[in-house]
């Protein structure tokens, strides 16, 4: 058990280093002088570029620059924003909090609705309910989040005037973006729940339970669900990661002041330190979530625990 966790932790390190390198290289391949791109200086013809490069360490080999960047990032220093001149981390921190809030609300909705739909579809497999659940999930993965967002704004804000169309205020501002963001995850979670439960329903012990005369609902909730939950946990974790990407679009639709919107604005302003910092935060969170999902999967699955002991 412990060995598996340590093993996974060690495997995550090269990926983390790799992704920081990827982000670093992508943004250092921006055409133009790095003094101008990364420090936002207006270059005058008379400027001593060599001296500036030397001062900022940009004349050193790329590998040394990367190590510097990594070392500073570990210490929480992601450089300064070109636009606001403040430290990137300070600028992004409020966005991170807002995005986390949105993502948490969405994953909560997705788990509750997605698993319910999946259980229903497996319980009434091949019935009209199953087909309804399938249609919902097919629409969920096909409809672009930014369109669903616009439709919900049109219905709930413009037509019915029930909920605000965007911005951040009280809990009512959270409902529409969270609902929009959760739709694709509802689709995936319900499909995986159904497939996993159906597989368990074929097991011998379910037949035993049935021949004992237990009701279908008891079998589903006591015998099938606990055994079929593991793939669902994995998918929930992965979906949480993908939600982070979806937030970029949803935040733009609903003017939600999160990390994604900062990121998009930063690209438009060519504020490269902010772009680099933002992408880095998303990447690290994504890798860490995947790691936690893996560990949780091992920790919760008694079969794997026994396998390890024996």
């Amino acid at each position: 058990m412990l060995r598996i966790i340590v093993n996974r932790l060690l495997l995550a390190i090269p990926v983390l280093v790799g992704v920081t390198l990827l982000v670093f290289l992508i943004l250092h391949s921006v055409p133009g002088d790095p003094v101008a791109t990364f420090y936002g200086m207006d270059l005058a013809p008379g400027d001593d570029l060599e001296a500036m490069r030397n001062e900022l360490g940009l004349d050193r080999p790329l590998s040394a620059q990367y190590l510097d960047f990594l070392w500073q990032a570990v210490q929480g220093d992601l450089g300064n924003s070109i636009k606001t001149r403040r430290p990137v981390l300070q600028d992004l921190s409020q966005g991170v909090v807002n995005t986390a809030q949105l993502a948490m609300a969405s994953i909560f909705i997705a788990i509750v609705v997605g698993m319910s739909l999946g259980i229903l579809a497996a319980y009434k497999a091949y019935s009209i309910w199953d087909n309804i659940s399938l249609s919902v999930s097919l629409f969920g993965i096909s409809l672009p989040v930014f369109w669903i967002g616009l439709l919900l704004i049109w219905l709930m804000s413009v037509k019915l005037a029930l909920l605000p169309s965007g911005g951040k205020g009280d809990w009512r501002n959270l409902i529409l973006p969270a609902l929009t963001l959760s739709l694709a995850s509802i689709a995936v979670i319900s499909r995986v729940t159904r497939a996993s439960l159906l597989e368990i329903l074929n097991e011998d012990y379910i037949r035993t339970a049935r021949s004992k005369g237990l009701s279908g609902l008891v079998i589903m909730l006591r015998h099938t669900l606990p055994n079929g939950i593991f793939p669902v946990i994995t998918v929930v974790g992965l979906q949480f990661g993908y939600l982070l990407a979806g937030t970029v679009l949803v935040e733009t639709v609903f003017s939600w002041p999160g990390l994604g919107r900062y990121l998009v604005d930063a690209i438009k302003f060519r504020d490269y330190p902010v772009v680099q910092g933002g992408v880095l935060i998303v990447a690290v969170v994504f890798v860490v979530i995947n790691l936690l999902v893996d560990i949780l999967y091992y920790a919760l699955n008694p079969r794997l625990r026994t396998a390890e002991r024996g």
Binding site: G18, V19, Y242, L244, V264, A283
Partner: peptide, 10 residues
């Protein structure tokens, strides 16, 4: 290790 849209944005 980057979500698709974020990789594309980067």
């Amino acid at each position: 290790s980057l979500p698709g849209l974020i990789l594309a944005i980067a």
